[in-house]
Nucleic acid binder design. Structure first.
Lengths: 149, 149
DNA sequence: TCTTGCCCTAAACTATGGTTCAGGGTTTAT
DNA sequence: ATAAACCCTGAACCATAGTTTAGGGCAAGA
């Protein structure tokens, strides 16, 4: 008899998704894996459908969705097709948040790039020294301890 | 006598950068603000140069640099022009990490988009139902409790 | 002067997302 | 049949990044 598809141990899953076993247990405890069944020995036994759901969880996690929201999403998935509008809303708002954050990060990264450019300029040392000197003077001009120098 | 430039209270700084005062105090305690001087009363008194540095800190923080690394960077800034190579290295490697992470997030976001597309398809409900049915069958095929349904 | 608003510190508390450990059963290969 | 390799739970522990609270001093306007 040929086994078309198997079940997977927690170790298999950990390796497949490159997650620590402890994280999988933790996710289960947090209610992210309500679909995982246990065998007679009390061992978690993962099916291929489980793997698909875990892939989704990992994907959401990689995009920094909070575990609370992932749990919510999974609960929607368990609830059948009537939850499709809720799933869409959840994923959409997540996507928007992610894109907004990406944009903000790109913006702040530009400022960092600007600093890098300055450090790469031939007169970088002089510029940096002048800044430091200015900061120093400013402190003394205000009767403050000169924390620069 | 005309005051060309002023100093700023912690509240001023908090408002300018839209940070809670408690966070500024926390950053100071974590060694991110070694440049901030205190007046006779023990109050922090911020200069314009301080504000520039804080802007940089906020920028690094917005791009998720760990406080530990920001402290390092600020310490380099206090150390004068000889630390320019170190500053460059730190900012460069930070930038690379950020870009790499951005790329990964965009990739995972595509998977989420794929899910959204499916939910938006006319046959979404049927598809979702079929998936659930499959998952159900799979559980029973392996003699596991049917966690779906 | 005295009240209101602002400032300070230290220490405790919170949230999030895990990891590690102790103690104990199961399965597999030899 | 026994050791090595796995699996389990619960509870403690950890890191990161703050926030809150308690207790007290300083400053500015009425």
């Amino acid at each position: 008899m040929i086994k078309i598809d198997n079940t997977y141990t927690i170790k298999d899953v950990a390796e497949r998704f490159n997650l620590p076993i402890s994280t999988i247990r933790y996710y289960d405890k947090q209610g992210l894996l309500p679909f995982v069944a246990k065998n007679q020995a009390g061992y978690r036994e993962f099916t291929t459908a489980d793997l698909h759901l875990i892939r989704t969880i990992v994907c959401l996690r990689n995009t920094e969705m909070p575990l609370r929201d992932i749990r919510q999403y999974i609960n929607y998935c368990m609830a059948g097709p009537k939850s499709i509008p809720l799933r869409k809303a959840l994923l959409q708002s997540h996507k928007s948040r992610v894109l907004k954050k990406q944009a903000k990060i790109m913006h702040d990264l530009q400022e960092i790039d600007y600093k890098l450019d300055r450090y790469n300029a031939p007169d970088a040392a002089a510029f940096v020294s002048a800044e430091l000197q200015f900061a120093s003077n400013e402190k003394r001009a205000h009767g403050l301890r000169d924390t620069f120098s």
